[in-house]
Design a protein around this nucleic acid. Structure first.
Lengths: 189, 189
DNA sequence: CTCGTTATATAACAGTTGTTATTATATCAT
DNA sequence: ATGATATAATAACAACTGTTATATAACGAG
């Protein structure tokens, strides 16, 4: 009996992400999304009864995209830890507004970054680190945390346009921090 | 001929900062500031013909407060580099909304943090670093940069409530990064 | 075909914002 | 005292927002 929907939930979420990407999270509202889809505001209100609900799902969608983005590196060629860090930074540079949007979120992935147990895909990486650098589980977690703070710091500055993105500069910093922290740990023993 | 102004520019700026502190930068608008000062919107529009102008001056005021905040440590007792870093982090924890507001600003101090020549008060600190750790000027700048990224990363995560503020944990991380980076530099020679 | 269901359009309401008249009032030079 | 004028209050406009009421049209079951 029902007409088939022209506007799907997914189309709305896509339009929302695109809007944030182009004009920033402040520009997010029902009418603008509708305009992007060339429809009225009704389909949007129909699929998401409250705008806040749409926003929450946009956080989830942006976070999923972010996660996927992070993992696009060559595990044969690159050290996973540094490669993920550099992807994290590149994301902030290339998807500035999405990164800023994500930072506002309560569900922000970085929350999980610190509790490694919540990110199963990182477990093998930490094991490699432990084995290669001969660290304890505790130490490798702490080394990861320190690196993550530097990574997030650079990313955050990039997303707010206070530094330029220079991949070789960034990886230099990351390597310095990472190797330095590991060296410091081993020196303390 | 003129009656003396009841509402001064400074009162407006103070009310604005207090508003951001309490309710976040999104709550900033002419009517709310007026309410805080128990006056109409006119005095605000009188002193700042456009709201954007007021916002710009609030950035400057917040930045000045931030700078002042950073320097409140005991130079006899604490290592300046680490102490300033810890103050930076503490600011993000205690003045969460002000930090988030500042991060939006184009004038954000961190811009200057990377170009040390723009922060004359840091010059003596860098000199001490060079002397004590026996680094070149270039190296000490780079060590400072790495430390700053980690500091800003932690601060940013704190301001967005994704980690807890634990001073001893934070200074542990900072020391680790700082000593690590210096060690790494010297090991490379 | 016809009818009920449902996705959509149109339009409107209410609240909030920046901004701008218009009006009132307090001060001080005269 | 009084009048010129800087400051402020009141009120309103226009733009934008979330949300809802009403009407319309598309689709498929019967």
């Amino acid at each position: 009996m029902p007409p088939k929907a022209k506007i799907t939930r997914e189309m709305i979420l896509d339009a929302g992400l695109e809007l944030i990407r182009q004009e920033g999270a402040d520009a997010l509202n029902v009418r603008r999304i509708a305009a992007k889809l060339q429809c009225s505001t009704q389909p949007v209100m129909y699929h998401f009864s409250k705008t806040e609900e749409l926003k929450q799902e946009l956080y989830i969608a942006a976070d999923a995209y972010h996660s996927e983005y992070l993992m696009q590196f060559d595990p044969e060629k690159d050290d996973p830890m540094l490669a993920i860090g550099l992807r994290y930074i590149r994301f902030a540079a290339e998807e500035r507004e999405l990164f800023r949007f994500l930072m506002q979120s309560e569900h922000f992935r970085s929350q999980r970054m610190q509790d490694m147990t919540a990110m199963p895909e990182l477990a093998p990486i930490l094991e490699i680190l432990q084995a290669e650098a001969q660290l304890t589980a505790q130490q490798s977690k702490q080394a990861f945390a320190s690196l993550f703070y530097a990574v997030h710091g650079m990313a955050s500055l990039l997303a707010n346009n206070t530094i330029e993105f220079d991949p070789s500069y960034c990886s230099g910093i990351l390597e310095q921090v990472f190797m330095g922290v590991i060296g410091f740990m081993k020196g303390e023993e």
